[in-house]
Every structure is written in C-alpha cells, then in structure tokens.
C-alpha cells in the first residue's frame, strides 16, 4: 500500500512518492473522537502546511505519525514504512518538534541536546559534539549553548527544540507550531530555515493555526476541522477550489443586492468596510462562471445602481479556510 524505501526520491511516472500517508486514520479517546478517519498524503519534497483551528486533531495526528500514540483504526506510513511498527528505522530519519519544546531546565542547552541525541542507541557518539554544535549554530543559539535552559526565553526554547530536530540529516521534519513564542525576527528565521530545508530536499510537515505562515512557506496544505481532513492539495489547488467573488463599491447598496439576487447570486453587505458618502461594499460569491462579469455590471447599471468600483476576485485561502471550517482565523498582524 505504500512505496518501499527504495522508491523514495525517484520521480517516475505516476503519483509522486509520499513522505507521509495515512488511510482511514482514527483516534478515539474513550468516547471522544479526536481524529475521525483521515487520508493524509504528503508528497516527498513538499512543504506541507497542516492547518486547522486549535483542537481540530492536528497534534493527535502528529503523535500518531511519530508512534507516540497508537491509531484506533487505520494505517500510517512514514517515509514508506508502517508506523508505529517500524519506528526504529523510521524515527532516526525524522526530526520533530511536537507541541512545543521540552527540556531539562537544570541542564544547559548543549547538555540537553547531547542527552536527547544519546537517547537514540544508534546515533554515532563520535560526531555528537560536532552535530550538536552545528544544530545550535543553525538556530542561532551558539552564544547561549552553555546556559541552563531554565534561563532561556520561550523563543530560545523554541529554537532549541528546532535544533534538536536538526541533530541529524533528516528526510522528514515534523514541526508542530514552530513559530510559537518567536518574535517577528525569529519567525522570519524559521521561515527561511524551512525554505533552506526544502531546498536540501527535506520534506517539511508544518502544523499551524496561522494561515499567513502557511501561505508564505508551504507548497501544499491540508485543512483539519473537528478531526476530519476537509481539504488537501497544493496551495494553488486549494485556492482554485475557492469560489470567485464579485465586489461592488456603491452608495446604492440595497438596490445592488436586489440586482445581484435576481442574477442568482447571494450578496452580502460587507460590514467591515465603513459606509460613507461614497457608499459601501457589496460582495457575493460566484457559484460558477455565469457569463461575463461585464454582464453583471451592465445589469447593475441598467437598474440605476451607481457603480463606483467593480472587481471579480479569486478566492483567498482565508476564505477557503473559513468556508471549510466555519470558523474565523487568527490573523497575523
């Protein structure tokens, strides 16, 4: 059901090899359904944004990908091998930041990384010091490597967590909310880090509840809602699936609504735009292409609507997200 490790990286005909693949993945805690049967497909080499509001089952899914939790039903394959059965061969090739960083506060950042690296019995001890220092350097923590973690800020801990994921060359990085607690500068650094990982060929699986973050760094995305994967694909695919929208700027808002309704659209007055003498904004999603947009303008004008502005806009990922999850989105300032 999943490609063998030998297939990884080959780009032959047919669908691209998948770094993460799940089939009917279900996780139940008692009576509560956390993940309700999802089929995740993360292509190799992609930067996959795993989107969803808090509590939609993102972290639970990630825990199952990393063999921390066992699926109630369904199958998980990571880097082409069954999980959790093959965790011993899969996990050394996976770097992970799961639900925030966690370290021994009484040890230095460097000592923490040494200890975590030594936890894998197969990690080469000879190169450990060099790998730890390289990872610290990559996240810009070299200057604080000797400090005890209890003295670290939240952002420094987050960087140290990412450094832990970078201790060895990885084929897959799983980053759960990697920019949490980071200042704008840190957030930019994480973005450039993800891009550089992607250029090196690493598949990056980033979970986030911040849409802007995903839009800026991801090639693919999946959207979770209440334990279900409601959409996944490339960003372009997701946007394309979103409906187009007409926007009419006019002082005759009520009349414009009437005309649009007659044309079979579902108009609404955008309350977010303040109404003044110049009028307000009426918008309506276009269910499917109905002739030329110019015909809509003609109909409006014919009915005496004073059109000050008109536009047909492609659906934004934000609209798509709101449409799919029925929830508002936190917006990055």
């Amino acid at each position: 059901m999943s490609p063998s490790p030998g297939d990884t990286g080959t780009t032959g005909p047919g669908p691209a090899a998948l770094a993460v693949e799940t089939h009917g993945l279900v996780k139940r805690f008692g009576h509560q359904l956390a993940v309700g049967g999802i089929d995740l497909a993360v292509p190799q080499g992609s930067v996959f944004g795993f989107l969803g509001p808090n509590g939609s089952g993102k972290t639970t899914t990630i825990r199952m990908l990393l063999a921390l939790a066992a699926p109630t039903h369904g199958a998980v394959a990571v880097l082409g091998q069954d999980m959790p059965r093959s965790f011993r061969t899969v996990l050394p090739r996976v770097g992970a930041l799961v639900e925030g960083p966690a370290f021994y506060p009484f040890l230095s950042g460097r000592a923490n990384l040494h200890r975590l690296d030594a936890a894998d019995a197969n990690s080469p001890a000879g190169t450990r010091a060099a790998r730890v220092d390289a990872a610290l350097d990559r996240v810009g923590l070299t200057h604080a490597a000797g400090k005890k973690v209890r003295a670290y800020s939240l952002g420094m801990k987050q960087r140290l967590g990412i450094a832990n994921a970078l201790l060895a060359p990885r084929e897959l990085m799983v980053l759960d909310e990697p920019t949490n607690g980071l200042d704008p500068q840190g957030t930019r650094e994480v973005r450039s880090l993800v891009r550089s990982l992607a250029t090196e060929g690493t598949t990056v699986f980033v979970s986030s509840h911040l849409l802007a973050e995903v839009e800026q760094i991801c090639t693919h995305a999946g959207i979770m809602r209440a334990g279900l994967l409601v959409a996944q694909g490339t960003l372009a695919e997701l946007r394309r699936d979103g409906r187009e929208q007409v926007r009419v700027l006019t002082p005759d808002m009520a009349r414009a609504c009437g005309v649009l309704a007659r044309l079979g659209l579902v108009p609404e007055i955008a309350v977010s735009v303040p109404t003044d003498d110049d009028g307000g904004l009426v918008r309506a999603p276009v269910p499917e292409r109905r002739g030329e947009p110019a015909d809509i303008v003609a109909a409006l004008v014919a009915d005496g609507v004073r059109v000050r502005g008109f536009a047909v806009e492609a659906g934004s990922l934000e609209d798509r997200f709101v449409e799919l999850t029925g929830e508002g989105f936190e917006v990055v300032e």
Binding site: R63, L66, L68, V94, A102, F103, P105, D117
Partner: peptide
C-alpha cells in the same frame, strides 16, 4: 511531566530500552 518523554521516544529511545 516535563514533556521530555515524547522527545526521548521520538529520538527514538525505544520504550523497552527506556
């Protein structure tokens, strides 16, 4: 309690070995 358990297991330390 510290949360380090998940990182040890992802390392992977192996549950029996841990």
């Amino acid at each position: 309690g510290m949360g380090t358990l998940r990182y040890l297991l992802v390392a992977p330390a192996g549950r029996i070995r841990l």
